[in-house]
Design a protein around this nucleic acid. Structure first.
Length: 644
DNA sequence: CCCTAGGGATACTA
DNA sequence: ACTCGTCCCTAGGG
C-alpha cells in the first residue's frame, strides 16, 4: 500500500511527537487502519459469523486516547472503491477465501491456534462493521464522515479546506494527495511520528528545483496503488530520475524512444497514458464537501486537465447527486449499494458455494428499498458535465464519445459552433434540460471555482483557475454559454495575498504566492514584495515560473481577442512520438506561440518583458462559427515549465 | 556497492 | 456486487 519506500526516504524530516503536542487541534483519522487492527482481536468470531462488536470498543478506546490529550478527532471512513482497482481486489478476495477454507479445515483438525492464524488472514472490513462504529460515534457525539470513495482523498481535502489541522494514518499516500501534516505510527501511549510536507526541501533527494507536482510524479513513477512501477524502478531511481530531468513527459519519451540504446527501464505499452491517469487520480479524485454538501474534486481541475476528466469516472469516481452524497457522508447510505445500510448486504464470509447452504436459504438476500435516488445518476451528471465542460473548453477540442484512446488521439482541428456542439452531443438532452439543470446548484466541481476565492497553499494549480475565471467570464458575458454562472468574483489583489507570512518552511506555497502575484498584477514585477525567504526556498522558485505566467497570459489574450486570430498552419516539425505523447500529456496546456519572438524568449528562458499581456479589449466577442479554429500549431508543452 | 524484489514471520485486547 | 498490512532480511542484478 501507499508508496513503498517513501517513509524511509523521508526519514530526515520525520519528527517524533506526542499526541499532547496537538492539544486543541482537530485531527482527521484514517479509520480503516483502526478497524483492521481491531478486527484481529475478534478474527475468529468474525470468521465464524458470530455477532461481535469487540472491534468497536477498540476503536473507541483510541478515540478516547485522542480526546484525553485535548484533540478533537474526526473519523473518516472509506467509501466505494474505484473501479480501476477492481482487478487487485479480486486477487485479494480469492486469497481471503483460500485462507478461510484452510481455517475451517484446521478447526476440524482441532488446531485452534493455526485456525486462528488463518482467520486473521481473512479479516475483512465491511461497510456494516463501519456502521457499528458509526453508531457508537453518534452516541458519543464524535464527528465522522464517510468518504464517497477513498478516505485518503477525503482526509487530504478536509485538511485542505481547513476543517482539520492534521491527518492521522498509516498510509504514505496521504502525502501524495497533498496533505501537509501527516501523523503516522500512533501507539497506545500516544507517541506519533509527524511528517510535514513543508520540510520536503530538506530531504536530500529533493534539494533543488522541486515542486509538489514533481514530488507527486516521482511517487507515481516509483509505483503507487494506481500504477505499478516499471521493472527495476524503485523509490531511489524514481527520485533520481526526476532530479535530473526537465520534465517527466520528456523522460518517458526518451525511455520510450531510446530505451534500447541507453540504460533505461523497459517501457510497457500504454504506460504514459496510465501515468497521466494516475496523476489525475491523485489530483482530482472526488470527495465530499461538508459545507457545500455535495461532491467536489480534491483540487479544482485546470483547463488542460478538464478535457480528460470526462472519461475518467473510473479513476475519479462517478459523480453522485448531492442528496446521495450527503446520505453516504453522514452514514445513512451504504457507499457500495447507495441504499440504506442493511445487514444482508454483507456476505463476505459466505463462500461462493455457500449459496446452496441451508443457512443462506433461510436468509435470502432481498433487495433493500431504494430511497430518493434517481434511477440513473449518471444521466443528470452527464448533462451538467457536457454543458459545463463544453462551454469552458469546447473551443479547443472536440469531444467524440466513441474515442477509445482520448489521450493518444491528437485532437482534430475543431470547427465547432459552441451551441450546436452542446445540443448535438450524443446524450438525449434538450435545451430545456440544460436550462433547468443550469439553474440548480451544480454537483460538478468545476463550477465551484466561480464561487470560491479561497486559495490553498498546497494547491499548485490555483494560477490556472485565475485564467479559468477570466475565461469563463468572457464566455458568459458574450452569452455563449447556456449555463448561468454565478457572478465571477474578481481576482484578489496580489498585495493582499502577499500578506501571508512566507517562511522557510512554506516553500511550496511560496512559489504559489509568487505566481499568483504575477498573474493578478500584470505589469508589476514582484521583486520589492518578495518575501525574505531564505536560500533553501530560493531553488523552489524559478525564473521559468514567471515566464510561464507571461506566456499563458499572452495565450489567453490571443484566444479571446479575435484581432490576434491567425489561420491554422500545420506545425513545421511534429514528430509522431511528440504528437502522441505531447497531446496525451499536456493536453490543452500546450501553448501556441503567437510570434517567433515569444518562442525565442521561451527558448532563452529570459527576457520575459516582451511577453507582458497587452491591455485587454473590453468584452471581445468570440466568433460564433469556427470557434477554436486556431488550434495550437506550434505546440510547446506548458508543463515543460514545471519542475526545473 | 547500491538498489529492487520477493519471501518469511508476525500480528490484537483486558 | 459488496475495503488497503508491514517489517526485516537477503538473494540477485546492474
Amino acid at each position: 500500500m501507499g508508496i513503498s519506500g517513501l517513509l524511509p526516504l523521508l526519514e530526515p524530516i520525520k519528527k517524533n511527537k506526542h499526541l499532547r503536542d496537538y492539544a486543541g487541534m482537530r485531527v482527521a483519522v484514517d479509520t480503516y487502519v483502526w478497524l483492521h487492527r481491531a478486527a484481529f482481536g475478534c478474527a475468529m468470531d468474525l470468521g465464524l459469523g458470530k455477532k461481535t462488536t469487540a472491534y468497536v470498543s477498540f476503536c473507541m478506546k483510541r478515540v478516547a486516547l485522542l480526546r484525553q490529550f485535548g484533540i478533537t478527532p474526526v473519523l473518516v471512513f472509506d467509501g466505494g472503491c474505484l473501479p480501476m482497482k477492481s482487478h487487485t481486489e479480486r486477487e485479494r478476495r480469492l486469497r481471503r477465501q483460500e485462507a478461510k477454507k484452510k481455517a475451517h479445515e484446521e478447526l476440524l483438525k482441532g488446531d485452534t491456534s493455526k485456525a486462528m492464524e488463518m482467520f486473521q488472514q481473512c479479516v475483512n472490513i465491511t461497510p456494516n462493521m463501519a456502521l457499528e462504529l458509526i453508531k457508537a460515534l453518534r452516541k458519543e457525539k464524535i464527528e465522522f464522515i464517510v468518504a464517497p470513495y477513498e478516505a485518503d482523498a477525503q482526509l487530504a481535502y478536509l485538511e485542505k479546506i481547513g476543517k482539520v489541522d492534521a491527518v492521522l494514518t498509516e498510509d504514505s499516500d496521504l502525502l501524495v494527495f497533498g496533505c501537509q501534516r501527516v501523523l503516522l505510527k500512533l501507539d497506545a501511549n500516544g507517541s506519533v511520528v509527524e511528517i510535514n510536507a513543508r520540510d520536503f526541501p530538506h530531504v536530500p533527494c529533493m534539494k533543488r528545483g522541486w515542486t509538489f507536482a514533481k514530488f507527486r510524479q516521482a511517487c507515481i513513477l516509483s509505483g503507487c496503488d494506481y500504477l505499478p512501477s516499471l521493472k527495476g524502478v524503485g523509490i531511489k531511481k524514481a527520485f533520481d530520475t526526476l532530479n535530473s530531468s526537465s520534465s517527466i513527459e520528456r523522460t518517458l519519451k526518451t525511455w520510450r524512444t531510446f530505451g534500447f540504446s541507453i540504460k533505461a527501464p523497459k517501457m510497457r505499452d500504454g504506460y504514459e497514458t496510465a501515468f497521466k491517469e494516475a496523476e489525475l487520480t491523485f489530483l482530482y479524485q472526488r470527495v465530499y464537501d461538508p459545507d457545500k454538501k455535495r461532491l467536489v474534486h480534491l483540487n479544482e481541475p485546470i483547463l488542460s486537465d478538464l478535457d480528460f476528466m470526462e472519461d475518467l469516472c473510473k479513476f475519479l469516481g462517478r459523480d453522485l447527486e448531492p442528496s446521495v452524497a450527503e446520505g453516504i457522508a453522514i452514514g445513512e447510505l451504504n457507499p457500495y449499494t447507495l441504499r440504506p445500510y442493511h445487514p444482508d448486504d454483507d456476505f463476505f464470509y459466505e463462500d461462493l458455494d455457500a449459496k446452496d447452504d441451508e443457512a443462506t436459504r433461510h436468509h435470502p438476500i432481498k433487495p433493500t428499498p431504494v430511497p430518493h435516488v434517481p434511477k440513473d445518476l449518471s444521466a443528470s451528471a452527464r448533462i451538467l458535465q457536457v454543458s459545463t465542460t463544453a462551454n469552458l473548453t469546447g473551443q479547443y477540442t472536440t469531444k467524440s464519445s466513441d474515442s477509445t484512446s482520448k489521450f493518444f488521439s491528437q485532437p482534430e482541428k475543431p470547427t465547432i459552433d459552441v451551441d450546436e456542439h452542446v445540443y448535438s452531443s450524443s446524450f438525449p438532452i434538450t435545451k430545456n434540460d440544460l436550462e433547468l439543470k443550469a439553474a440548480e446548484p451544480s454537483p460538478i466541481a468545476s463550477l465551484s471555482r466561480f464561487r470560491s476565492t479561497s486559495i490553498n497553499p498546497s494547491d499548485d494549480f490555483s494560477y490556472h483557475s485565475t485564467v479559468l475565471k477570466s475565461k469563463a467570464h468572457a464566455v458568459d458575458s458574450n452569452n455563449v454559454s447556456p449555463v448561468r454562472l454565478t457572478p465571477v468574483i474578481p481576482p484578489r489583489p496580489a498585495m493582499h495575498l502577499l500578506k501571508r507570512s512566507v517562511t522557510e518552511m512554506d516553500s511550496f506555497s511560496y512559489e504559489h504566492v509568487q505566481i499568483r502575484k504575477e498573474t493578478t498584477d500584470g505589469n508589476k514585477t514582484d521583486r520589492e514584495n518578495s518575501s525574505p525567504a531564505n536560500v533553501a526556498v530560493e531553488s523552489w522558485v524559478t525564473e521559468e515560473a514567471s515566464v510561464k505566467i507571461h506566456l499563458e497570459s499572452a495565450r489567453y489574450m490571443e484566444q479571446t481577442n479575435p484581432h490576434q486570430h491567425r489561420p491554422y498552419k500545420p506545425p513545421a516539425v511534429m514528430p509522431k512520438t511528440k504528437a502522441v505523447f505531447g497531446s496525451a500529456f499536456n493536453g490543452l496546456s500546450t501553448f501556441r506561440s503567437s510570434s517567433a519572438s515569444e518562442q525565442h524568449v521561451y527558448q532563452g528562458g529570459d527576457n520575459s518583458s516582451s511577453l507582458k499581456p497587452k491591455k485587454a479589449r473590453p468584452a471581445p466577442s468570440l466568433p460564433k462559427k469556427r470557434l477554436g479554429a486556431g488550434r495550437p500549431t506550434n505546440l510547446i508543452p506548458i508543463t515543460a515549465f514545471f519542475g526545473k
